[in-house]
C-alpha cells in the first residue's frame, strides 16, 4: 500500500515533469526510424525482425528506466524519500513505476513494429504475449536495481547501459529465442525450458534487489 503511494507520487510527478515518458517516446521513434532507413528496400528475414525488436526494447529501456532514481538524485529529493519511507517501500514503489513504464513501452513498440514490419508475423500469439510479460518484468526489475546503483555515480548516462548489458544479456538472448518460437508457431511445451529461464531470472533479480537495495539506498 505504501509502495503504491510511492508509485502514485512518481506517476503524478511524471505527468507534470515528463522526465521519463518523453525520453522513452523519442527513443522508440528514433530507433525504429533508424532501423527502417538503414534497411531500405533490403529483404529482411522474420528472425532478424525479431532480434531487432528486442534491440529497440533494450535501448529504449536504457534511455528511460534509470530516471526513477536519477530524477530523485538530480533534484536532490533522495533525502526526503529516505526520511518518509523504508528502503523496501521505495524499492517496490519504484519497481511498480518501472513495470508500468516498461509495459507501456513494450506495447507501443509492438504496435509500431506490427504496423511497419511486414515480416514481423507471430504464429503463436499467446506464447509471444507470455514472453513479453515475463521479459518486461525482468527488464523492469533489473533496471530498477541498476538505476539505484548508478544514481549515486557521476557518469550516470554512460554507466547505466554498461552495467545493464551483462545483467540483461541472458534475458534478451532468451527472449530472442522465444520470439523465434512464437514466429514458428511452436507450442508452450516446446518453449517450456526458455519460459522457465525467464521465471527464474525474475525470481533471482527480485530476490537480489530486495536483499541489496538496503545497502545501495543508505549512503
Amino acid at each position: 500500500m505504501k509502495a503504491l503511494s510511492v508509485f502514485k507520487k512518481d506517476w503524478e510527478s511524471e505527468l507534470r515533469t515528463r522526465y521519463a515518458i518523453n525520453a522513452l517516446a523519442m527513443f522508440i521513434l528514433v530507433t525504429i526510424s533508424v532501423i527502417l532507413f538503414s534497411l531500405g528496400d533490403e529483404p529482411v528475414t522474420e528472425y532478424l525482425t525479431g532480434g531487432l525488436f528486442w534491440v529497440v526494447i533494450f535501448f529504449s529501456a536504457m534511455s528511460g528506466l534509470s530516471r526513477v532514481f536519477v530524477s530523485e538524485e538530480e533534484r536532490g529529493t533522495t533525502l526526503t524519500l529516505q526520511l518518509i519511507a523504508s528502503p523496501s517501500t521505495v524499492f517496490f514503489g519504484k519497481l511498480i513505476f518501472n513495470l508500468v513504464l516498461v509495459y507501456l513501452m513494450v506495447a507501443a513498440i509492438t504496435f509500431l513494429y506490427s504496423l511497419l514490419f511486414e515480416n514481423f508475423v507471430i504464429q503463436n500469439g499467446m506464447l509471444f504475449f507470455v514472453s513479453l510479460v515475463l521479459g518486461s518484468s525482468g527488464i523492469a526489475v533489473s533496471s530498477t536495481l541498476i538505476a539505484a546503483i548508478i544514481s549515486k555515480a557521476n557518469t550516470k548516462g554512460t554507466l547505466y547501459p554498461v552495467l545493464s548489458f551483462p545483467v540483461l544479456l541472458p534475458l534478451i538472448l532468451t527472449l530472442v529465442k522465444l520470439t523465434q518460437f512464437s514466429m514458428d508457431g511452436e507450442s508452450f511445451e516446446f518453449a517450456w525450458t526458455y519460459l522457465a529461464i525467464l521465471v527464474s531470472y525474475n525470481v533471482i533479480m527480485l530476490t537480489g534487489g530486495v536483499l541489496l537495495f538496503d545497502f545501495i539506498w543508505k549512503e
Binding site: E12, S13, R16, R75, G76, T77, L79, T80
Partner: peptide, 11 residues
C-alpha cells in the same frame, strides 16, 4: 530539517 532537504517542486 536540513539545507540538504529538498521537497517536490512540481507539487
Amino acid at each position: 530539517v536540513s539545507p540538504y532537504l529538498i521537497l517536490y517542486d512540481e507539487f
